[in-house]
């Protein structure tokens, strides 16, 4: 049975590193894995997505179908809503309680929409996480992405994979411990 994980956010939030770590772990656990990213304009404040699909059997498409994501992890709250039509009927949303306004808001053409969290909760099984606050507790707001990765690991029951090893192989030495803590924090928050 193929599992579908959708990571969404805004360029520069670290979705790409989080999805890289995730896919490497899944590969290590001998799953067939496919991952697809669209990030053409990401550097310039655009919306970014990573589709991750894995299975004990063969995975064909690297792209999740609408209505099929087991979990959506949103690094920014409006992005959670943007891609909510990818969520499965019994899928889960983990949403970072974090706002990045975007050009229409900063330029004064629009207001950042109110009631996003309420709308998410109305439609889907939603867990709100203040990843920025949690990250600062750990020691750096930069590990926000690893906390959110931790929520995926927790909610998809992937805790038996040796994530410490994957981090050791893929993160700069001085940040390994911080990232390990962040993933553990995310796993706890997903419980």
């Amino acid at each position: 049975m193929t599992k579908n994980i959708l990571l969404v956010g805004v360029g520069g939030q670290g979705t790409i590193l989080a999805s890289k770590i995730l896919t490497l772990g899944l590969q290590k656990a001998n799953y067939d894995v496919k991952m697809s990213e669209i990030h053409g304009m990401s550097q310039r404040g655009g919306s970014v997505t990573s589709h991750i699909r894995y299975s004990e059997d063969k995975v064909y498409s690297p792209v999740i179908e609408h209505g099929q994501a087991d979990v959506i992890v949103a690094f920014e709250k409006m992005e959670a809503l943007r891609y909510l039509d990818y969520l499965k009927v019994d899928g889960k949303v983990f949403v970072n309680d974090y706002e990045i306004p975007g050009m229409p808001v900063t330029s004064g053409q629009a207001e950042y929409p109110q009631g996003i969290i309420e709308e998410l909760k109305r439609v889907a099984d939603t867990t709100v996480i203040d990843a920025n606050k949690e990250a600062e507790k750990i020691g750096s707001s930069k590990v926000m992405n690893m906390i959110l990765l931790g929520t995926i690991i927790g909610s998809m029951n992937l805790t038996n994979i040796d994530w410490d090893q994957i981090l050791t192989e893929n993160v700069k030495p001085q940040f390994i411990e911080l990232n390990k803590k962040a993933i553990k924090c995310g796993i706890e928050l997903a419980k």
Binding site: V10, M41, R44, G45, G46, S47, M78, L81, R82, G102, M103, P104, V105, A110, Y112, P113, Q114, G115, I116, E119
Partner: peptide, 9 residues
């Protein structure tokens, strides 16, 4: 209506 575009800048 609660989702705004993010045009590149």
């Amino acid at each position: 209506s609660k989702v705004l575009g993010r045009p590149p800048a």
